[in-house]
Nucleic acid binder design. Sequence first.
RNA 1: GCGCCCUUAGCUCAGUUGGAUAGAGCACGGGACUUCUAAUCCUGAGGCCGCAGGUUCGAAUCCUGCAGGGCGCGCCA
Length: 581
Amino acid sequence: MSDIATIYAAYAERIDAVLSALEAEGTLPPEVSRANVSVEPPRDPSHGDIATNAAMVLAKPAKTNPRALAEQIVEHLKRDPDIESAEIAGPGFINLRIAGRAWIDEIRAIGSLAEGYGRSGVGKGSRINVEYVSANPTGPMHMGHCRGAVVGDALASLLDATGHSVTREYYVNDAGGQVDVLARSAHVRYREALGENVGAIPEGLYPGEYLIPVGKALAEEFGDKYSAAPESEWLALFRPRAVAAMMDLIRADLAKLGIAHDVFASEAELQAAGKPAEAEKWLREQGLVYDGELEKPKGKTPEDWEPVELPLFRSTRFGDDQDRPIRKSDGSWTYFGADLAYHMEKAENADALIDIWGADHAGTVKRIKAAVAALGEGKGTPVPFDVKLVQMVQLMRDGEPVKMSKRSGNFVTLADVVDEVGKDVVRFTMLTRKPEAQMDFDFAKVVEASKDNPVFYVQYAHARICSTMRKAAEEGLAPSDEALDALTAEDVALVKLAAQYPRLVESAAQAREPHRIAFYLYDLAAAFHAFWNAGNDDPSKRVILTQDRKLSGARLYLVAQIGQVIRNGLGLLGVEAVEEM
RNA sequence: GCGCCCUUAGCUCAGUUGGAUAGAGCACGGGACUUCUAAUCCUGAGGCCGCAGGUUCGAAUCCUGCAGGGCGCGCCA
């Protein structure tokens, strides 16, 4: 945490101090919550620099009306020399106008904090585990995984920037039936590598060509020892090798997107360590697991459905629609049974958990939240647990939806898309919609190099700034903070927008909504482009002014700080701030 | 049948956790390039915030109901 308070935080403190003073003199009753007191820029800039609703929120507990309370607050605020004016407006808003020098100081703060501008310690080092991607290790990543990957990664960066101790985690589902299918598919490729004519890949196995090198590696390691052997002899050998190969593929895909997890947690290892059994034992002691019969499914009833007694987790106690089995009738763990143990273990090693899931898993949110809630209840310390659902992305090409079918192997891989349009485009585009809303990803639109495309628009603003610096250097001009007083009101207006960056990062982190950063950067870029163009009509508004080197130095310093904020924001999103376009 | 998500300008979407006159972009009309990068900017028009109630000083935002769209609803993962 820096010792330089950014401007909105500083004024929030000043207003808070006034409220404390009013409390001390008895105008406000003691110990009234100020949680709802906001200190933010008003929507309409003509209202001033900072607005607070303090009088409206606190009028009722103070047993007075908003305007009367506002009068008293304003009286205190006016004693502050940096506050040029404090006015009461509307139902009781207090609008403040800040002295110009305060904004000048803010430009310097950006300059001295540099890449640290916008970072804060509000998270107080609390440990947050963010689990994202967690794609099944049965093949390369496809576009269905992309949105969650980007949103999760940007969210992790955002939490890191706000002073949380973040663990980026990937849960590897390497214990279920699908990895047996993977091993069988690899066995076919293994026989193929030994020279056998295997023909078409059998129905139900993974047909993808990405398993060919896996088959070759198995042939090199084992020779023809297992080519005709029964499955029981080779399955346990082939499975971990195939999974490891798939995880290598997936890690390479993630690297293309600029994503690197800290922890890859293996479901198989979790089971081998007996964690689900431990969880079951503990839950039985709590009366939260019992042997019972599952209800008949509500929707279409499967033809082979019959009632069986299974160990059930009492998730209905925590709001789920029905209790959920943790083991199958053959005694092996269900996906949920292992996942439950996994989450309970995560919860014991973190102060808060976040999972990023695809919307197709929405139906399982309640049961897993129930599991974490059960742990919290049992241990007496609830662990905040948030499941963020990212909605489907519809791929579009030439105005037509791109069809994907995983079973046939006909899916658009993440790597192909990144190769086609670039990492920056993929990442930024995934953040240009709030995650809970569905989105289209149109190949034609996202590569368009125009203002229709937010990535280019923002990157262009940064490139323009870099270009200006290069050009200025040719003219013998350099950024300087010596004559910042010479800046005009229009110059300072740009600072006011840049100054919102720290509070935006904070609120985006708190709301766990990284897309807000993307929208903010678009706005900041727009303000910069407008600022820039003003110099086309009126040469006195240009940044490079050879006839006024002091003002030019100040403007260069200002513009450099705008570039700094854009760079910081893009950094959070994992998008490159290009210097030339 | 049940659960979750969505519904804001003709189109694609924001909306600072309940604040002031609901904002951008596209498309449409009018304008700015012998330039500090026009990959940009300025300007005009465009709204029953899906519908109906409720909560309060105040609702696009919170609650209830309804309609439309999406996702899901086996001992799968």
